[in-house]
Write a protein that binds this DNA or RNA. Structure first.
Lengths: 137, 137
DNA sequence: CCGAATCCCATGTGATACTG
DNA sequence: CAGTATCACATGGGATTCGG
């Protein structure tokens, strides 16, 4: 509990900040939610290639509903990860782009996705073996 | 749509693999789910410090229900990220520990959490400002 | 074109009680 | 001690409709 003589950096800190306690001032949990939810990481990845319009995103992501796209974009905007620019023209035009903060998240997402891709075969095999064992019993 | 003349490496790959399509052979989405769900990352972080018993984890994580702990541990075991060892003694004793594969995920989770912690103040401020603007209107 | 509102179902999560 | 089973509830997320 005490800060103590720990030489490894940022370990108990990490687990503490993962706590979902409401009084936790550290929005770590909500960041993980953003990355882990169904569309957050995907939207950030797409915006990494540059400013994009609403319907452009909708077409690119293919499978996302209008509602979830709007909703997820709002959350990301609220967190300051992207900016929303409205051009009051007719027809209306709204552009989204990553903020500098948002861009710093891109390499981390890529790393996570890279890890998952690199190990996908192993994981897939592990799952199949696990499922097979369950069925056998 | 066509692969085209893209020169930036590993970009469309990433976004493609984030797709939730069922026929997607790449379990990237499910990995993000594991990290992003309420308890996965937290359990992995705790196990990073060594083999731990069931009720030990339950006490350490504090707030997790028995059900969610069991359930999340099973998912992680199925993915080959941790091992479950049962000692058929009385009272029963079950120990969990990360596999080598699971341990390779630890630094990435730490990095993600580190990012969130490093930027938590900025994000918090951004949210407050966003909320204030909404209320003002 | 962009998005809000509504309806509705599936899933996630907690509480509690029960079992080997 | 380490689960499983069941219920009850909140949230996530898709489909559809309406509005500026």
């Amino acid at each position: 509990m005490e800060e103590g003589t720990r030489s490894e950096p940022g370990h108990s800190d990490v687990t503490a900040c993962l706590s979902p306690e409401p009084e936790n001032p550290c929005p770590v949990r909500s960041i993980l939610d953003r990355v882990g939810d169904k569309w957050g990481a995907q939207i950030i990845s797409h915006l990494a290639s540059g400013t994009t319009r609403f319907n452009e995103l909708k077409r690119q992501i293919e499978g996302i509903s209008q509602r979830m796209l709007t909703e997820t974009l709002r959350k990301l905007e609220r967190d300051g990860l992207l900016t929303r620019t409205v051009y009051p023209s007719i027809p209306p035009k709204v552009e989204y782009s990553l903020t500098p903060l948002g861009e710093t998240l891109v390499p981390i997402i890529r790393e996570l996705v890279g890890w998952a891709k690199a190990n996908s075969a192993v994981i897939k095999a592990s799952r199949e073996q696990y499922d097979a064992e369950q069925t056998t019993n």
